[in-house]
Design a binder for these strands. Structure first.
Lengths: 211, 211, 211, 211
DNA sequence: GATGAATGAGACTTCATTCAT
DNA sequence: AATGAATGAAGTCTCATTCAT
């Protein structure tokens, strides 16, 4: 009876416990992203949610590292599927500019900033499986994206160019944008509108290049 | 009297000391890049170069963090100047493809992989000055590059496009390439030839887009 | 109303509870003997019998130490009486070899191996009363045994020797045998037949010495 | 350059360190024997010798268990050789009573009480090698002792009996004596004279049996 | 310059025990 | 009776740093 799935038949106590666990993960994620895994003590996590020191080992018997792994697992789980599905169901008749914008948003919104920071900064601490996930995600997106671009090319909406490289170019742009916003950006928090404008600018330029 | 510059009048003892210091920095850099700053103990560094535990504070009185800062300082020092100079002296008559390839190589070779990993992973530990260096480097390269591209555009070698965005696109591509090779790549060590081919492919595609 | 004695008028719930309690004691005894008291957590005991963590304090309100004391109490209770009775009722006409063998078996069978390990290893944790039991048992056995041996001596079945020391010699032999089988033996589990043969050999040799 | 062997060329600092290490082992041995391994905290050991908390890991990097293993190693090392040598060099012309007394004293004096308590109580924590040492010691002593007894038998000083079993009987007696003095005896500390008298009594009785 | 013993704060973790449900 | 979340003291261990030699 998985704690995270089974929601019916849970007593209020189970619910409370599930809530604690979730809160613990959220707080740890925030702190890990902010200050780094090694710079965040378990005590600090506990204090942040007003929890007794030992309780962490009730929820995560293998300790602090299990928390990190669980955070990454929970945050990435299903994301490839979501991405693949979204890309697969992309409407072929939608204007290409709208399509690219939509894809960009899916990637950017899907990738929460805290997760990105953790994945990059704490990568040596991740499991092999999780490290592999990073690579696979890129490849998947590029693969499916190049298929979509190819269709547009055949319809004459784009010049005849190497689709794979077009896809890589698109992903590189988004990646740069994300890294700038998370790792390098540090404190600069631009507002949503400005962010959107930046994405739009990127995509319009790409289209100009590809037409 | 900077230890690393002044070479005349050094006794053999001074030379030995300078050698030790250099070795310490190299080893620390390697370990920091491999396992992260917080996961590398000073003891580990000392053991790696067969040095006594206390001696680290002779070379770096402010301790471990000073080592990190020195590594970053030494590794980045003069790099912007080198880049600026290289970009400024770029031959205007060189075929554009060769020019872009040369620039790409300057960036890639300039940026040693260990440094990149450290700059990205340990960014919160860097001094403000060093953090700023990261941003300035990008801006500098993009600025000068866009000037170079504009010249080519005026000569009719490129389509009329936004030069700033072209430059960003170029830098994003290189950045993606570097990140793939360092942070994400993990164990995959491609050989030099394959790396060169990849860079060439990127540039040829960019040129195709821009013409 | 001792839970382990009173069997009539028990509801099925009482029976279930009595069963649990017994199972808990058995499992704890096994684990304490195997890994030591301090190396066995209450959680481990609970998991082993599939019991909730808190329930241990329903059965043993004073906690873990009470379990140890109860194990020792239950295991030793009545054993001196049994021994005394068995020794007292020893048939005076039985061949002396059979008598000694019978006594040896009474001691060995009476002393279950897990109990011996616990008594010796965790002796500092026992109550004073229980510690005293250990000494008294030895003295009792030696005292009564020496009486039995004296009778045989008077009947001319044995040489004229110090009966007390004969008894001690007998007990020492059995003790060595038991310690070899429990503390030192570790993994070596000889079968019953071989064990019996060893005891017989010991006794035949003693008789040879004493005749 | 082994710390415990090389004594020449040691600076006063080395000597001081060696002294500390020895003191640490002695104190830990005493405390482990007194209160048990799990009941003795590292802090307690440190306090007992006025040492800083972390220093234990300078001397024993693998921690508390390494201290126990070192204690057992140091205490047992060379003891078999000593025993074997002493038994081998036993004067064949010495009166048999004196010989047995001497052997008893070698065993008893060789076996320091703290070590015995630790070996028996903490046996599950020992290395396999150390556990094996216990068995081997018994076998060795019994083997050599039975050779010595056989010689006496051939000289007519003893009856014709099974030498191996005689040796076992001797060792069992000593073993019982030791266990009584250490594990079971608890606080009772008899004086040396009384102890000697007890051993003598044991041996005289054995000789009476064997003649 | 060099050594490594010494320090002690603080990290992670375990565990018996309590208690609301 | 039963559950398992909650508690917090205490344990083991790590580590950057200091300092006498």
């Amino acid at each position: 009876m998985s704690k995270s799935v089974q929601k019916e038949g849970m007593t209020s106590r189970d619910l409370q416990a599930a809530k604690r666990r979730k809160q613990l993960l959220q707080t740890a994620k925030k702190l890990f992203a902010e200050k780094g895994y090694h710079n965040t003590s378990t005590k600090e996590i506990n204090r942040a949610i007003g929890m007794a020191d030992g309780l962490i080992y009730h929820y995560f018997p293998k300790g602090k590292l299990e928390i990190l792994h669980t955070i990454v697992q929970d945050s990435t789980e299903g994301k490839i599927q979501q991405l693949e599905k979204a890309l697969k169901n992309m409407d072929a008749d939608m204007p290409i500019r709208d399509m690219l914008l939509k894809i960009a948003h899916i990637i950017v919104d899907n990738a929460d900033n805290e997760l990105i920071v953790i994945l990059i900064r704490e990568q040596p601490l991740l499991t092999d499986e999780q490290t592999e996930w990073l690579t696979r995600t890129f490849d998947t997106v590029i693969g499916q994206l190049s298929v979509l671009l190819e269709k547009r090319m055949l319809k004459g909406e784009l010049r005849r160019l190497n689709c794979k490289l077009m896809a890589r170019q698109f992903v590189s742009s988004i990646q740069s944008y994300l890294i700038e916003q998370t790792i390098l950006g540090g404190g600069k928090h631009r507002d949503q509108t400005e962010s959107d404008k930046h994405l739009m600018e990127l995509i319009d330029f790409l289209l100009e290049c590809w037409r």
